[in-house]
Every structure is written in structure tokens, then in C-alpha cells.
Simulated assay, not measured.
Amino acid sequence: MKKIYFLSVSLFFFFLSVGLFAQDQKWSVEANYPISIGVGLGNDASGVIDFGVKYRFLDFNIVKIGAGINAGVYTEDTKDYRDPSSYDFTGTHWLIQPKVFAEFAIPGVKRLHPSIGLGYTFVQSKYDGLFDYGPQEPPFPGAHKITESEGGISLNLGLSYDITKRFFVQTQLDVTRNVADKIKVEGETLKNIEHISLLKVGVGFRF
């Protein structure tokens, strides 16, 4: 997952450099500050960065249809201040989000572009620290390193505003439901359901 993330970052800067010479503006790249809403990525997951690339392959004037992918990183530091022996761990989450989307033009408001997208969210998480879920439930009390893989269908709602012909600012909301977790702890695989909501605010460049 980390290799995919760094590849996405490299592609982001590659498309940005290519875009300086492009004219059709079917492509766009974006950099966002992501915020985890709720407990889908843990109680205290902080967004680090989110990069995205989009390509618009159909243009019906009022609406453009395209596909895109985002890659983001989130971290958390969770502990029980009343009883540090209960749990105290750090976590890192890598997200890959491919999607298809529709971007709309509002007559009379050319700079404003609402959008809606449907895709899938892949999450790879790693936790390291002290866990205690009780003597009858794994992971058993003590220090552990846990890896977790999850994924689910996601809905994306966005709104962008053109500062110039190429540069824009945007905000978007990603909601992923019915995420099936696969947690590997000392050879045993556990499953549960999660809900992930992400708010992203950023800037972009069209080319």
C-alpha cells in the first residue's frame, strides 16, 4: 500500500509538469488536507495529505464524465490517560480511492462546479503498541503489532471554484459504508464492519 501511495504522489507531480504544456484541460491534479470525521479511522486519526488525479473522457457541456484516483495518509495516537496500562498505541492508515464521477456546470455561474462520484476505498492500517480488550478476546493484553485491511464502496460529493482558467479550490466529502475489516493478530483473522467519512479541502490544477 505504501508503494502505491508514493507512486500516486510521483504521478501527481508528473501530471502537473505535463499540464504546463497541455491545452484541452481534460486532466486535473489536486492536493488536499483530509480530515477524518467520526471513528471510522480511529478516535483520533489526523489527516496528513491527500493527492488526486482526474481524467474527463466525456463532455456533454452541462456535465463531464470522468475517472480519478486519490491517495491519502492518516495517523493516530490513542491512549487511555486514566489507565495507560489498558491501551496506548499509534496507527497509520494508507487510503487508495479510485472512482468515476460526474462534474456539472451551473448556467450563469461558470466558476462553480459541483460533482458526484462513486468508487471504492482501499485501506491498509498498521498499529503498534499496547492493547487490552479483555482476557477472552484477541488481541490479548500486551504489546502487539497489528495489520488491518479493509475496503468498501464509497460516495463522493464535491464542490470546486475556479480561481483562474486552470487553478481551482475545492472541498469534498467521501463516505464509505459497510467496510469489512480483516485484522490479522498472531495468526488469527478477525472481521467487523466500519463506516468511514472524510472531509477534504484543497487546491487543484486543470490541464
Rank of each mutant, 00 (worst) to 15 (best):
S149K: 14
T164N: 00
F168W: 01
G142E: 08
Y161R: 02
N156E: 09
G142N: 05
R177M: 09
Y161I: 04
L155S: 10
G134N: 04
T171W: 00
T176C: 01
T176Y: 05
V175G: 06
Y161G: 02
N178V: 02
T147L: 05
I146K: 04
P138A: 13
G129P: 07
A143W: 10
V169A: 01
E150F: 15
N178Y: 15
V169F: 10
L130Y: 08
L155I: 14
S149Q: 13
R177H: 13
S149W: 04
T164V: 01
E148Q: 12
N178M: 06
T147I: 05
L155N: 06
K126D: 10
I163P: 00
S154A: 13
K126F: 01
D128V: 00
F167T: 09
G158M: 02
L159N: 03
F131L: 02
S160W: 02
E150R: 15
L157N: 01
P135Y: 12
L173N: 03
N178D: 15
L157E: 02
H144Q: 09
G129R: 07
D132H: 07
L130D: 01
D132R: 03
D128S: 15
H144C: 11
D174F: 15
L173F: 08
D174A: 11
L155C: 03
L173T: 12
F140C: 02
P141L: 08
L155T: 08
N156W: 13
I163A: 05
G152S: 10
G142Y: 08
N156M: 11
P139W: 07
R166C: 00
E137R: 14
P135G: 08
N156T: 09
F167A: 07
P141Q: 09
R166L: 06
F168E: 00
R177I: 02
E148C: 04
T147F: 12
Q170S: 03
L130W: 05
N178I: 12
D132I: 00
Y133E: 14
N156V: 11
I163K: 01
R177G: 05
F167E: 03
F131D: 05
L130Q: 04
Q172V: 13
K145H: 09
K145T: 05
G151V: 04
F140I: 04
T176R: 10
V175E: 03
D132C: 03
T176P: 01
G142A: 07
K145W: 09
S160P: 04
T176S: 04
Y133V: 12
P135V: 10
D128L: 12
V175T: 14
Q136Y: 14
V175W: 11
P135K: 06
D132Q: 04
N178H: 15
G152H: 11
S160G: 06
G151N: 02
T176V: 05
I146R: 13
P135M: 06
E137G: 07
I163V: 10
E150A: 15
K145N: 07
D132W: 02
P135L: 10
L157I: 11
S154T: 15
P141Y: 11
L159H: 04
I146V: 15
E150Q: 13
Y133R: 12
G142D: 03
D128M: 12
D162G: 08
F168N: 02
R166G: 00
F167D: 03
G152R: 12
L159G: 04
H144T: 04
L159D: 12
I163W: 05
G158E: 00
D132L: 06
R177W: 08
Y127H: 13
